[in-house]
Simulated assay, not measured.
Amino acid sequence: MSFTLPLYHGPDFAQAQLKNAPNAEFRPAPMDGVAPEGYHATSIFPEYFKVNGTWLLAEESRMDCVPVLREGKIAVVEFRNLKAGEPVVVGRTEDGSQGIYVHANGFEEEKGEQDTFSFRQGRSRETAYSMDYDSIYELLRHEKDHGRILWVMGPACAFDHDARDAFAALVRGGYVHGLLAGNALATHDLEAGYLRTALGQDIYTQRSMPNGHYNHIDTINAVRLAGSTAAFVRSGKVKDGIIYECVNHDVPFVLVGSVRDDGPLPEVYGNVYEGQDAMRALVKEATTVICMASTLHTVATGNMTPSYRLVNGVVRPVYFYSVDVSEFAVNKLRDRGSLSVRTIVTNVQDFVVNVRKGVL
């Protein structure tokens, strides 16, 4: 079965409600990093703003930011990046009555008659995920050549031999266009490629090695001595793995640190806002995002990922998956406003292995 992107059905601006709507109101930002009173905050959905009689789509959006008129276009800007005097949209209605229209149903298909009451409508460890897997395989085959696939990964993805091997194969196969993670994922993956352990434990047998608790910091120290992760990989000391393949196939990765990091690796962002900017640079290109076993990085990525993307003048959906063995972890993202996320409750190591088998 071939994959087809759903068509986007834009608003009907000829209808009286929108045709007769006023222009959006703008007020200047009172100072750097501060929005004017009554500012409008963006959502994950396509939003249009009426400027000089024309409805303008915010082409690159994210939730909890403010729309600003820059060079004749609507830019969606984090509060911290506002400049004093910039014209910021004000108004808190979304129906066009203030020149602001949020279009939440642009990708909805016609739905048949449904029962008012039915079982198993939630997403839990008891959910049947066979169709989800098949859909992911089809989506990834399409996105490999027609989109940008961004992966968000926690360290659990690097602790297992088969999972590392499977994801490395996905990188080689062209199914990875970017990677977001923390210090731990990269450190333990490099440790595995360097010393065959993750946190001192053999990645295949799970046997703890003598003095194995040194292995991850020995790895960080060796990488820092080499000057960079890429230099360490190219030295030949790393034999395989996720970061190894990303370096050798020019796949960009962004590593954002936390207060508990040791080392860290040279590329890890210590300033979280610089890290957020680097993450968003990859998110802006992504058309499919798959998050695995990293609650904090998943929520962070979800908060900066809209439900749509403008590609060559065409509005298309952004597909967002959250995969975790914990129901709490996948539900937390929905609770934070990322309503378009598709959740899968399973062991991420099994998930990666299954995806590899499904597409390669």
Rank of each mutant, 00 (worst) to 15 (best):
L310S: 07
A104N: 03
R27I: 04
E94R: 12
V268Q: 05
L282A: 08
N23Y: 07
F159Y: 15
P6G: 09
L139S: 01
G122E: 05
R207N: 11
P155D: 10
E191L: 13
L139V: 01
I220K: 01
Y269R: 05
T42N: 08
A192H: 08
E126G: 03
E191D: 09
A278P: 06
A281D: 12
E71I: 00
E138K: 12
K332D: 02
F253L: 10
T298V: 01
Y244H: 15
V268T: 14
R27T: 03
K73M: 14
L255Q: 09
L150A: 11
G33S: 02
R234T: 07
T187E: 11
I242P: 00
Q121A: 00
K111R: 15
L185C: 05
V283E: 04
G106D: 08
V352K: 03
Y204K: 15
L139M: 00
N183F: 09
G270W: 03
K237V: 10
V68F: 14
C157W: 01
I344W: 00
H142C: 00
L69R: 06
F79R: 06
V272D: 04
V314L: 07
Q15T: 08
S97E: 07
M279T: 03
L5R: 03
V77E: 12
F26G: 07
P266C: 10
N331Y: 10
V315I: 15
S326K: 02
S61H: 03
E126F: 15
N23T: 02
F320N: 04
H146T: 04
F117L: 15
Y101T: 06
S235A: 12
Y321T: 00
R356T: 01
R260G: 11
L82W: 10
D145Q: 14
V247Y: 12
D32N: 07
R27W: 08
V259I: 15
